[in-house]
Design a protein around this nucleic acid. Structure first.
Lengths: 219, 219
DNA sequence: TGGTGGATTTCGATC
DNA sequence: GATCGAAGTCCACCA
């Protein structure tokens, strides 16, 4: 990785056109050729960048980075403060826990968390436009399609409504209705669900982890 | 900005739990307290990070970064190769051109690009769930609701369908129909539009820029 | 290889 | 401050 701290101005032309006036910034060049220009604030996102694969041409205080799609990033270096390179080696990468797949796994094991007496029929129940997360039956023997999101927003409700629309004509699915499940559901999403006759439930991930059966606790 | 190159292992606990095994990485600390951990590859996104506001406590080769929401990032430094700090000063920020707002502006000025003989009634035509981008009339005097996206995907068609559903009952909008407009429209979005009786049109941004009236060319 | 959906999304505008 | 929508989104998965 090469790290350059310099007073520079930058232009990008590609999916849009953008310019950065002259200022002091960090230019980061990764081993795969990625170039990122960071200011000393904001979140992790650089002000400007170019992802691999690309080519860097360096002439007289000017870097021209191009990629096969015809995008270009031009960096004009007005004053270089530091310029250093470092060997990193392979990175083993990040291990994650707590994303939507896990939430689905936990809820499949404990459908009662969603609604009392709910029983799982199968995960990833197929429809023409994609699978429903969980298909269950309730205590009355009625079918319940469950859509799971980490965050409950309006488009998740839309998605479930579309599934229901497609599945309702199937007379095998007696009394089919929907439940929208997420860790947190936004007010507007709750409202839309109610308008469409869809129930919703908020579930607690940590609570679920604590309650899941032993065999699931080992991943 | 402080830049540390070190062999380190990292743990994050907050919205999810994640760990990074020991390896050489760049740790970037910005003036506002943001911490980001980069490997020497991948795109601009760091492997792990913590956004401001937060607090960094540094003891004996261990950094503990916490934020008010109770998230924590723990960095164990096993071997420090470089550790440097730099003054950047304020950044004037990025200037952009070519985003959706401009596209709407250009199409409002040249609705004929969308369909021959189309005339603009107004931009941001209100509905209970948000404004329609453009309301126009065609050569027959029928109303046309236009939804504009930079990229035409399925949810944009959904959005326009929702608007139309809400606006159809309004008898003032004689013969109301919809057109979905984007620079590029995905096949599935085209199909969905056609199924719902919504027309679609692909427009070229550069071409529009060239054709727009003089007064608009000055921004 | 292209499409689709998730993200510790980030970011900005608007209410 | 909350919410909503766009992003040069990036990214992984899957057809």
């Amino acid at each position: 990785m090469r790290l350059v701290v310099a007073r520079c101005s930058v232009q990008y032309s590609g999916r849009l056109d953008a310019t950065l006036p002259e200022a002091v910034r960090l230019i980061m060049v990764k081993a795969d050729g990625c170039v990122a220009i960071h200011s000393d604030g904001g979140a992790y996102k650089p002000l400007n960048w170019m992802t691999a694969p690309n080519t860097v041409v360096e002439i007289e205080g000017q870097w021209i980075v191009t990629n096969p799609k015809g995008e270009t990033l031009t960096i004009n270096l007005h004053e270089v403060f530091t310029d250093s390179a470092h060997e990193f080696g392979e990175d083993p990468g990040l291990q994650k826990d707590g994303v939507e797949a896990h939430l689905q796994e936990l809820l499949a094991a404990l459908p009662e968390t969603i609604e009392n007496g709910l029983t799982l029929i199968r995960r990833e129940w197929p429809t023409p436009i994609g699978p429903v997360d969980l298909m269950c039956v309730d205590t009355e023997g009625n079918y319940v399609a469950v859509e799971i999101k980490r965050r409950g927003e309006i488009d998740g409700v839309e998605q479930l409504a579309r599934y229901l629309e497609l599945l309702q004509p199937d007379s095998n699915l007696k009394g089919l209705r929907g439940i929208f499940v997420a860790q947190v559901i936004k007010p507007q999403a709750k409202k839309m669900a109610e308008q469409r006759g869809i129930a919703w439930a908020e579930v607690d991930y940590e609570d679920l982890r604590g309650r899941r059966p032993e065999e699931l606790r080992l991943f």
